[in-house]
Amino acid sequence: MDAVGSDVLTLHHLAVESDPRYRDNELYLQSLKGEVKAVTVYDLLNLIGSVADAVGEREARELYAAYLRSEEHVVLFPRPPGSWEELMEELMPYVLKGLDHNGALIAMTVASHHEIRRYVTWRKLYRGKMPVNVVSPKECLRSTQV
C-alpha cells in the first residue's frame, strides 16, 4: 500500500493548477481511485493546516473528519510514546539521517506499519532516509505504465 505525503494531497485539495507538478499529481491520485491509500496522521495534520490557512477552519475540520471516515484511506497513527526518552530513541535514527522533525515523525509512523511499501512525495530530501522506498507521483505513473 502507498502512503501519500501531505504535499501530494495539498496540491490536490487546494487545486494548485499553476504548479508544474499538478497534472502528474492528479493522474497519480486518479490511478488510485477505489484503492485503499494510507496517510500518516502527521501528513494529515500538515494538510489540514494548509487548508485552514488557505481556505478556513471549517473546511479544515471537515476534511480531517472525512479522512478518518474515508473508506479509501487508512490514517496511520504511531504507537503513542511512553516517555520523552522512548520518543528520542525512535526519532533519533531518522534525524541523524538528515530528516527534519516532521520527516522523522512520518518515518517513525511508516516504520510501524509493515503494510506500507512506498512513501509517495515530491520531497526529494526524504529519499534514502525513510524506512520504505520514496517515490514521486510521476515515478509511480511511469512504473504503472511499464
Binding site: 487545486a15 488557505a54 481556505v55 476534511l63 472525512a66 474515508s70 473508506e71
Partner: peptide, 23 residues
C-alpha cells in the same frame, strides 16, 4: 468504532489566495 463511508478525494477547495507547495 467510527462508521466509514465515502472518500475525501472530491473535497477540492478554492484558496483565498495563491498557494505554493514546497518541493
Amino acid at each position: 468504532r467510527l462508521a466509514r463511508s465515502g472518500s475525501p478525494s472530491d473535497m477540492v477547495f478554492k484558496p483565498k489566495r495563491e498557494v505554493e507547495v514546497e518541493f
